[in-house]
Amino acid sequence: MNLSELWHYKDLLLRFVRRDLIANYQQTILGPIWIFLQPLLTTFVYYLVFGKIAKVKTDGISPLLFYLPGVIIWTFFSECLNGTMYTFLSNTHIFNKVYFPRLIVPLSIVVSQSVRFGIQLLLFFAVFVFHLFAYHDVNPSILPMLLLLPLLVCVTAAFGLGSGLLISVFTARYRDLDYALQFLLRLFMYAAPIVYPVSMVPEKYRFLCWLNPLTPVIETFRSVFFTGKPVEVQYLLISVASVSLLLLAGMVLFKKREVQVMDII
């Protein structure tokens, strides 16, 4: 991997980020307010469907607070994945005309999604601080929170990027994957504890649920912000390790295939 070359193109990366952020909200009335609206509306729907109708337990956490981080983290992950897994298909016109390290494109998607994620985190903090002082119904552990939050962000981004890079090589070749992937991605959401707590999963299968790299991320988030329960360190470590491997595999395959892929697209 040619790091100095990547560095040379850092301006391009930032430019792509800028393009995504500006172009996405052109000719919309509410503009960037959508960044706030999307998680809020989703949370509200989950609250109605899963909280009120299906009466899914929330581990004693106030429902709004319970759903919001899961929604934000899931959105971050799925947008990273969705953005990067079509790298070749959606940039054919540029890749066919100009050379630059192709990795710049998926990296820029992760950065611009991180910006959105950061803004949504601010929204979450606002809700969180309100609960902290108005209802006193949360029990945060400050030090682990500060230490672990960056790690959780990185694991989520790396999971999205790593799997996106791997898949991007195949979506270019086999177009059918598109349909399958969108379907699988929707199913996968329910494999992560977004609308339910892990404690609701039967003891026998709980281990499987923890193997999903997103499970420790979301559960750790809830522990350090809301319940103050001890973090399941062993599962978090497994998650970090598996995601690192995935990212490495994704980068290697992407780098190896980036030129050949353009001949068959």
Partner: peptide, 15 residues
Amino acid sequence: RENIFLNGNILGMKK
């Protein structure tokens, strides 16, 4: 203006 920068960066120019 934005496109001058975008296109320039794509063609390998620095900001």
